[in-house]
Simulated assay, not measured.
Amino acid sequence: MGILEGKVVAVTGAGRGIGREIALLCAKEGASVVVNDPGVGGEGEGGDSGPAETTAGDIREAGGKAQANLASVADPAGAASIVEDAVQAFGRIDAVVNNAGILRDRIWHKMSHEDWQAVIDVHLHGCFNTSKAATPYFKEQGSGALVHFTSTSGLIGNIGQANYSAAKLGIVGLSQSIALDASRYGVRSNCIAPFAWSRMTASIPTSGEGAEERVKRLQSMGAEKIAPLAAYLCSDAAHAVTNQIFAVRRNEIVLFSKPRPVRSFAKDGGWTPQEIADIAMPAFEPDFARGDEVSAHVFPYDPI
């Protein structure tokens, strides 16, 4: 028996890339899977039933149970249909993997309101919409798992991704609050920051210092390496794991810390702006994060 035997899992953005690998593994581990994917392009354009239908068909061909869903998670009604399809097709919903995403990468001064809104809608609002739709079922049955996909672009920062970074860090805040609010009902909520080559990461520019090397390293990290952690977090084996942030880099699993105070400085009577310049900032400076820090500075080594 697999670790998800008898469970029903919905995976968004499951037609291709990381989502597809998660859907396939969850099915292999015994889950019935709702494969959600509207089949849009990398920036959210168009639509095609092919990716979702193909993944669902591959699961059924391998002897598993799957239902394709073509809704957009950015639409509250569409997100609700993902959960409703799970309940109607398989009788319940046990976990939702919020993987769906698009990119509208633009350097900050060229980012439009439309670029900002489109990415926020799919990533942050999409996670809210699907999680909100699943919660009444989780609450009634006294159990449920939410697995949200964040990114080091949000946790650390990245160039040309203000919209994506804001959405991905927002997802962490959403996950943490869900974990705290819903723990009384047996609901768990966790985040994964994936390192993997996919259709989305293929848009990363290769120009600039160290960019080509970073892309080459990322190309060596397969999407299939992300799926085991996602499947585990959906299972009863993870019953005590909630409110955490993980990353996966090939065969390496990383547990991230949450923001914590690094250093504090108090002065009797308070501060003037000049005293902050003369005293506080020089004291803090040794512990400053570097101003140009991206994930390559935090993870400069090749994973095994």
Rank of each mutant, 00 (worst) to 15 (best):
A118H: 06
A118E: 09
A118Y: 05
V119Y: 01
I120P: 00
I120H: 00
I120N: 00
I120V: 08
D121S: 01
H123V: 04
L124K: 06
H125E: 00
H125W: 03
H125A: 01
H125G: 01
H125S: 09
H125L: 01
G126Y: 00
G126H: 07
C127H: 04
F128Y: 10
N129Y: 02
N129F: 00
N129D: 08
S131N: 13
S131R: 12
S131P: 14
K132T: 10
K132A: 13
K132I: 07
A133S: 11
A133F: 02
A133H: 08
A133W: 08
A133V: 10
A134H: 13
T135A: 14
T135N: 13
T135P: 08
Y137L: 14
Y137M: 03
F138Y: 12
K139A: 10
E140W: 01
E140I: 05
E140G: 08
Q141R: 14
Q141L: 08
Q141W: 05
G142D: 15
G142P: 15
G142C: 15
S143A: 15
G144Y: 04
G144I: 05
G144W: 05
G144P: 07
G144N: 06
G144V: 03
A145Y: 05
A145V: 05
A145I: 03
L146D: 11
L146H: 13
L146K: 10
V147I: 15
V147H: 12
H148Q: 14
H148C: 14
H148E: 13
H148G: 14
F149A: 11
F149T: 14
F149Q: 11
F149R: 04
T150Y: 04
T150E: 03
T150C: 14
S151H: 05
T152P: 03
T152D: 07
S153E: 05
S153L: 08
G154M: 06
L155V: 10
G157W: 02
G157E: 02
N158S: 11
N158W: 03
I159Y: 07
I159D: 06
G160L: 04
G160I: 11
A162P: 01
A162V: 04
A162F: 00
N163F: 06
N163I: 07
N163Y: 03
N163D: 11
Y164F: 06
Y164G: 03
Y164C: 02
Y164H: 04
Y164L: 06
S165I: 14
S165F: 06
S165C: 13
S165N: 14
A166Q: 09
A167Q: 02
A167G: 07
K168W: 04
K168D: 03
K168T: 09
K168I: 14
L169R: 12
L169G: 12
L169S: 15
L169T: 13
G170Y: 07
G170R: 11
G170W: 01
G170V: 09
I171M: 12
I171E: 08
I171D: 07
I171L: 12
V172I: 15
V172D: 09
V172T: 13
G173Y: 03
L174D: 06
L174M: 11
S175V: 04
S175L: 07
S175P: 06
S175D: 04
S175F: 07
